[in-house]
Design a protein around this nucleic acid. Structure first.
Lengths: 271, 271
DNA sequence: CCGGAAAACTCCTATATAGGACTTGACTAA
DNA sequence: TTAGTCAAGTCCTATATAGGAGTTTTCCGG
């Protein structure tokens, strides 16, 4: 079926481009990444075998294997002994997120999370997200949600996306977004899986609008947690702020096993 | 009540036993790790070259390189083109910690942290640390400290260590521990660098003793943050609980560049 | 049609080799 | 003495090859 992208000469270099990587295995993984990024190979697809790639790219097996290894490391592909190399689905890249999961204190059992969408709006409001998302028109989609964990515990989340790239989401109904994982949707429908995220945290009084929404007393303290997520080639895709009021739920930083509040935690897989 | 000091998976013949790794490169990195772990090669030492190792281990260059690569990945050694392979010093493994650093909100400038030791005590008190640290006598060293950031902002930290292994610390004076990084000391003087850490977080009212110590009003909320750190072969070395009161300081999760409150943040290196 | 063996395909480990690039230290010539 | 060159040591990239192990497909005998 599909063939590998040609390892063409270095001349086709755009102005925005980072200079062509010096090393051959870098050029190869660059080529493969481009093919995935542009949707030529989509999540779940099997890409050509080592042998074919080596032949088509005029490289040795070792070099191709090295290129593939680096794609595995950033969570773009998965390899399976005897089966092949596959473009990662939505769930795989989470392994590389330093995200969080919720458990009862002193327990390791995960708790399910469900998100209710309050509204979806286009906004030109400026804020920390503007500097990060870099939308050329400075128009952003804002989705506000409230999450309940076991029905007892609430948190409030605002997520911003650049309108330029994800404008279709602004035209979706609240009902269509209810309960879905934004991150999954971006990966599956927009070819924008979250590969990295920078995160910050602090303890502050919750803004009145937030404490009102989640039914906390005015002036309540809470954790204010931001997540700035990037996809292929460090392209910014979402900026999110989450307000977590006091609770007995433990937020566990989950190295190597990706959970975040956006996912019903109990459908996660262990590894 | 407490179990034997033995790591069950090592001595017994159970199915989980990591007896002899099947693959040659694993056996080699295992062997090299043992040499480092036992102090045969110490931090800063240069270990034999690829060629020598290959000859001594009766392996090919590629296999030795692969074994070394896995040691680089877990932060045990560093390699330098043209110079050699060196056992990592105290600072290197931090790269693999998903720890935190403090900045002013909206800023990326790091803030220095200084720890004042309150007391160092031997305790048989039980708590979450007991299950984690697995000291055969259930005797733990507890170090309590207060940190100030730029002199303005305080947090409180309790760190527990197994007495069996780190008993010498219990006999150190408060003055000798003041301002030093426990983590550095463990790495440099006890051959116990922190390689991994599991962390949890929640927002709760601070215990009265804590809010009293840091001069916060009674019933103040704050972040309660725990760090369970392990060294070579996942051996547990410290269990730490940190109480962070509300503040404008942002706690930044620092993937790939390790900072934690125990280190004066401004002497960190960027990469 | 079914079951099972064989073949084809794929990724994995391991070896051997050649040349390039960076660092260090010793040696030589001014 | 000093500056420059050279050689040795070390890690890095890349190639080629052999055999092993897991998975899927094909095909043949019943």
């Amino acid at each position: 079926m599909t063939t590998a992208p040609q390892l063409d000469d270095e001349g086709s270099e755009g102005p925005s481009a980072a200079a062509q990587p010096r090393m051959k295995h870098q050029r190869i993984s660059e080529q493969l990444l481009s093919a995935i990024e542009t949707g030529r190979w989509r999540p779940g697809d099997r890409i050509p075998s080592e042998d074919r790639l080596a032949a088509e790219m005029s490289a040795s097996l070792g070099t191709v294997r090295r290129a593939l290894r680096s794609l595995v490391e950033i969570g773009v592909v998965e390899r399976h002994h005897g089966r092949g190399t596959f473009v990662s689905g939505a769930r795989a890249p989470e392994r590389h997120l330093r995200h969080f999961r919720f458990t009862a204190e002193g327990d390791t059992h995960l708790l399910p999370v469900f998100f209710n969408v309050l509204d979806v709006e286009l906004t030109e409001e400026s804020g920390p997200w503007a500097g990060f998302l870099q939308d050329p028109m400075d128009r952003f989609i804002r989705i506000r949600r409230i999450a309940s964990i076991n029905g007892e515990f609430d948190l409030f989340s605002e997520i911003y996306l650049p309108e330029r790239r994800f404008g279709d989401i602004a035209r979706m109904s609240v009902a269509a977004l209810n309960g879905v994982s934004i991150r999954d949707m971006l990966a599956e429908r927009f070819n924008a899986p979250t590969l990295e995220a920078r995160q910050t945290m602090l303890c502050q009084t919750l803004p009145p609008r937030v404490s009102r929404l989640i039914g906390a007393p005015a002036g309540q303290f809470g954790i204010v947690w931001t997540v700035a997520a990037t996809s292929y080639r460090a392209a910014p895709i979402t900026w999110q702020r989450i307000f977590v009021p006091p609770s007995d739920r433990v937020i566990e930083i989950a190295p190597g096993s990706g959970f975040e509040p956006g996912f019903p935690a109990n459908r996660g897989r262990e590894e």
